[in-house]
């Protein structure tokens, strides 16, 4: 069985005016379907990429997988558990939370600017009561920093003292802190410069190999996805229009939208033999 199974995921947003106003103006209810009947599965230890343009619903799917947004219909099973199962008890919910972590798009908004790096990394460790002993906790923080290519003395600094790429590393370290199995990467490099992007992508690859991590990788950039993903799903207006193994899908796209995306993506490949 797959590690992650999303079946019939649907999310609607009610954008209509309040009920009372509708009664007076006679306006109809206005429901936006951001994600419509999306199903896919991710095998353990692999990377599944969702590609799509703005408004395609990719971030909404990320939030539903992360358990911070409930689907309107459909369900997500992670290792056989569902965040929104009403019978899920607190202990199991905590265990499930510990398995899923996220790396975000903005290196600026994803770290609390008033917290020191050490405290940011300690938060998941403390929240899940992973380590009792204070000295061991400190050691773990240093270990995490070194794992993402930063140094021990960075833990006493604040986020604004780091560059975008370094902050993304810290964000990754925070995601790793509670030994997750699935990491959702929501456009993790779209705010970074090319040379830094390569560093972060390589780091993600290394961590996957070392820890057997499963990734859901969300991006608008087909070039980045083609170097990261085992499998790609193409999203358009909240629907999954095409899905397939990376090499097959890129070499032989079926859906017109995928073909258009491929043709439109800027690529330096033509210059490099």
């Amino acid at each position: 069985m797959s590690y992650v199974t999303a079946s019939g995921l649907t999310r609607q947003y009610d954008l209509s005016d309040p009920w009372f106003i509708r009664m007076i103006t006679g306006r109809k209810a206005n429901v936006l379907t951001a994600v419509n009947q999306v199903s896919f599965s991710i095998e353990k230890g692999t990377t599944y990429a969702l590609v799509g343009e703005s408004g395609s619903g990719k971030s909404t799917i990320a939030k539903m997988l992360a358990g911070v947004l409930a689907p309107s219909q459909g369900s997500v099973q992670i290792d056989g558990h569902d965040f929104n199962n009403p019978r899920l008890d607190n202990a199991n919910k905590k265990m499930l939370r510990q398995r899923v972590q996220m790396v975000f798009q903005s290196p600026y908004a994803s770290l609390n600017p008033r917290w020191k790096i050490g405290d940011i990394l300690l938060e998941p460790i403390n929240a899940f009561n992973l380590i009792e002993d204070k000295a061991t906790r400190q050691k773990r923080v240093i270990e995490l920093l070194e794992q993402v290519g930063m140094s021990a003395h960075d833990q006493t600094k604040y986020p604004h003292e780091f560059s975008g790429g370094q902050r993304q590393r810290i964000s990754i370290a925070r995601a790793l802190a509670c030994h997750p199995e699935l990491i959702i990467c929501d456009e993790p490099t779209s705010a970074l410069d090319v040379s830094v992007q390569a560093q972060v992508l390589n780091l993600l690859k290394d961590l996957q190999q070392e820890n057997g991590l499963t990734y859901l990788f969300i991006s608008h950039d087909l070039a980045v996805i083609s170097t990261m993903a085992n499998k790609i799903g193409v999203l358009k207006d909240g629907e999954l229009v095409e899905e397939g193994e990376t090499s097959g899908l890129l070499a032989n796209p079926q859906h017109a939208y995928t073909k258009m995306l491929l043709a439109a993506a800027p690529d330096i490949g033509a210059y490099i033999s």
Partner: peptide, 25 residues
């Protein structure tokens, strides 16, 4: 902001998020 989602993902309560994360900012 995304750091609030990160805090939700480790299971912090609303009260904890409000006091520890939002208030200082």
């Amino acid at each position: 902001k995304e750091y609030i989602i990160a805090a939700k993902m480790v299971g912090l309560s609303r009260y904890q998020i409000m006091i520890r994360h939002i208030l200082p900012n």
